[in-house]
Computed example of a mutant assay.
Amino acid sequence: MKELLVSGFAAIGAGSGAMLTLHAASNLDPMHAVISEYVWQSAGWLLPAALTLFAVGSALIAEALRRAGANRWVVLLLLGWGASMFLVGAFPTDRPGLPLSMSGGIHRYAAFAAFVMMPLAGLLLAKARVRYAKALRVLSVVAVGALLLVVVPYVVRMFGIPLSNDDIPAGLTQRVVVVTELGVLALAGMAMLRTSARRVPALA
């Protein structure tokens, strides 16, 4: 199981490195530009690469949790998060100003699904009182709060109120969601490093 966890951490680390490199090589404002827009930059290929690595890391950590006897819903949520991350990378968003396409729709709803699943997994692990339970709970709650801030502008636009990302820190709130959810995933794996010799408490 330790090999699975180390491989999972390596994939997450490589994905984070690719994401940071993409940001450094782009000229977008991270305060307002959402991460999806970086796919149209010259180094945009790093975005699907990073998301695929996150998906691989999540799958490896989910398998380690399964072998440790973790709650099956936690395992399924981590697998679902990884699958959603892969879809987000495989189906790029639309260029700014264009109507929502099928690719853009898959991208948007896969991202929303991922943003919902990881905090739920973190809260379930915290409820099972694994190592770092308090940190898992805090990060999960922060992720949910930031997700609400991400969703609000879309709801406002549905009522016909013009609101662009330049008017709000859309990029910042989205990055808070992504960073906290990666933190939840990493802590889920770290919680297993010293419990490989015993089973993780499963939730009833």
Rank of each mutant, 00 (worst) to 15 (best):
Q41D: 05
Y38A: 00
D94Q: 11
L98W: 07
V39E: 05
G69S: 15
L98R: 14
A68Y: 09
L77F: 10
R67P: 10
S84W: 05
R66N: 08
R72K: 13
V56Q: 11
L76A: 15
Y38F: 02
V75Y: 05
A83D: 04
L53W: 04
L47M: 09
V88R: 02
P92S: 09
G104P: 03
R67I: 11
L60H: 11
F91Q: 05
L65D: 06
G44P: 04
G105A: 14
A90Y: 04
P96L: 03
L47E: 02
W73L: 15
S42Q: 15
V39K: 06
S103C: 12
A49Q: 11
G89H: 00
P48F: 02
A90I: 08
P92M: 05
N71S: 14
A55K: 05
M102F: 15
M102H: 15
L65A: 11
F54R: 03
A64D: 00
S84E: 03
G69D: 15
N71Q: 12
L60C: 06
L77Y: 09
D94T: 04
S103H: 14
G105M: 12
V39D: 08
G80F: 05
S42L: 15
L100G: 05
F86A: 13
D94F: 07
V75S: 09
A83R: 01
S84D: 04
S42C: 15
V39A: 10
S58N: 09
L87C: 08
G82S: 00
A83T: 00
F86W: 12
A70Q: 11
G82P: 01
T93K: 00
W40C: 09
R66H: 07
A49N: 07
G105D: 14
N71F: 11
L87K: 09
G105S: 12
S36A: 11
L65K: 06
G80V: 04
A43F: 01
G97R: 09
F86E: 13
P48A: 03
L60F: 13
L46D: 01
I61V: 08
G69M: 10
A59P: 07
L100M: 13
L79T: 12
R66T: 04
S84L: 07
M85G: 05
L79R: 13
L60Y: 09
R72P: 10
S58V: 10
A64Q: 02
L98M: 12
G89Y: 00
E63S: 03
